[in-house]
């Protein structure tokens, strides 16, 4: 007798993902969906889609969804969670949305200890608009608006969100993970699940930064893009748990 050991999560709809071939947004979507399904909370989850490549994620997550203005997902999530404290609320945001235009909303949500989960997808570029420089673009990385490579003089160092958020007292759980191979996918899922579990236990704000790829705008094959995450991105954005208010006490 054979049994199913892996299948598409019920946390995803039947819609075909709008992401480019090999983009790891799809893997991150799966992990979020699997966690919500396994925790049995899909029916009380309200997700917030942001602006960027994941703008259409309201079509993909099989739960109630709201689409937020650029950068405002954490404000929208605050409005939802404050008025529906029994629901499970998450935002799904890219680096442009969260680390650039939406940094204020995200910091203040963390500082208030809002009891929701932020999935922060960092692929070091603005994918949706065609590959412009992001606040997380690496030094020397070429994009359509940094054709000679990002320079520190002009644009400063890439923002390290997990490290920054780990300094916020009421941020309960902050971790940076990657999905560039099987082992890391497994670990990423573990962290995302823990973040949702914390939310279910009313432990407050959690943010999981997931290093992700943009094969098309990086100009690489999907597999080479995964290698680039491993060799380049992780050097600047080390993986690990940056803050856990409940584990170390």
């Amino acid at each position: 007798m054979e049994k199913i050991v892996y299948q598409k999560s019920k946390g995803l709809t039947d819609a075909t993902l709008s992401y480019c071939p090999g983009c790891t947004h799809g893997i991150i979507h799966k992990l979020v969906a699997e966690c919500l399904e396994e925790l049995g909370v899909l029916e009380k989850t309200i997700g917030v889609a942001s602006v960027g490549c994941s703008v259409l994620s309201y079509n993909f997550f099989n739960c109630d969804m709201q689409q937020a203005a650029h950068g405002r997902a954490c404000a929208v999530a605050t409005g939802i969670k404050r008025t529906r404290p029994d629901s499970v609320v998450f935002t799904y945001q890219g680096d442009g949305d969260l680390a650039s235009i939406g940094i204020a909303e995200t910091i203040h949500a963390a500082n208030r200890g809002e009891n929701f989960t932020v999935i922060f997808v960092n692929n070091a570029i603005y994918g949706m608009t065609g590959g412009q420089m992001a606040p997380t673009t690496l030094i020397g990385q070429k994009t359509t608006t940094s054709p000679f490579g990002r320079s520190v003089v002009d644009h400063g160092e890439p923002i390290r969100i997990s490290e920054m958020f780990a300094t916020i007292p009421r941020a309960s759980f902050i971790a940076r993970v990657s999905v560039h191979n099987v082992q890391n996918v497994r670990n990423a899922k573990k962290m995302i699940k823990k973040a949702f579990q914390y939310q279910l236990e009313n432990k407050g704000f959690s943010l999981i930064e997931v290093l992700s790829t943009c094969p098309v705008n990086w100009g690489m094959t999907p597999y080479d893009a995964l290698q680039w995450v491993e060799k380049e991105m992780i050097n600047y954005y080390p993986l690990g748990v940056y803050k856990d208010n409940y584990e170390n006490k």
């Binding site: 917030v48 709201q66 404000a75 929208v76 605050t78 409005g79 939802i80 404050r82 008025t83 529906r84």
Partner: peptide, 15 residues
């Protein structure tokens, strides 16, 4: 800006 987007979220959740 945050306030009006909190309004959006809360209103969207039926409040």
């Amino acid at each position: 800006i945050a306030a009006i987007n909190m309004v959006y979220g809360a209103s969207g959740a039926g409040a």
